[in-house]
């Protein structure tokens, strides 16, 4: 590894504050929030090293972290692009053109859902209901929702993100 897996002092302080929200001896409860912070800090995905590090911090067996990380959709278990685009494909979004949006992004970035562009900039994911059906179609990029999507709107967002080198690896606790 180029970089040793270790939280910044700031993140460590946040992690300790989160652990303190649960009763003594129940630090396992902090696992989901801490994995979110770890994913944001260590490249947008959870490597075995990262999961082992989190296990050590929370005094858990590594398997307790692996079994959780593999259960929840928001945790990436393989490297992802710098900007992960998650498009909702469920019910009301489908009724309102989510299929076209997914196809359009797929064509524009020349990748299928689940894939990452060769330059590592973008990953396209299809996800299930994001609870924003009234403004369908919808996608989530890091800590933001983009709603009432059209192909034009998606194009201008992608152009903007290409220019600014957008990262979606947001720490949920930081604005």
């Amino acid at each position: 590894m180029d970089n040793e897996i270790k939280f910044s002092a700031e993140s460590l302080e946040l992690v300790n504050r989160i652990i303190a929200r649960y009763p003594e001896g129940k630090q396992k409860s902090a696992l989901l929030p801490v994995l979110h912070i770890a994913q944001a800090e260590f490249g947008g995905w959870l490597s075995t090293e990262t999961m082992n590090y989190v296990a050590g911090l929370l005094k858990l067996e590594p398997i307790e972290v692996y079994e959780v990380a593999t259960f929840y959709n928001m945790f990436n278990l393989a490297p992802v692009g710098q900007c992960v685009i998650e498009v909702c494909q469920t019910g009301p979004c489908m009724l309102n053109g989510a299929g076209e949006i997914i196809q359009h992004i797929s064509k524009r970035l020349d990748i299928k859902p689940g894939e990452t562009t060769p330059d590592g900039k973008f990953t396209l994911k299809t996800v299930e209901c994001l609870a924003a059906c009234g403004s369908a179609p919808v996608m989530r990029v890091g800590n933001r929702y983009h709603e009432n999507l059209s192909t034009e709107k998606v194009d201008s967002l992608i152009e903007e993100w290409c220019k600014c080198g957008k990262s979606s690896h947001d720490n949920p606790y930081n604005e």
Binding site: R21, L32, H36, Y72, N73, M74, F75, E128
Partner: peptide
């Protein structure tokens, strides 16, 4: 009363 917010991770 203490109140805390706890994020899930994507599981209906």
């Amino acid at each position: 009363l203490n109140l805390y917010c706890h994020p899930g991770a994507g599981a209906y």
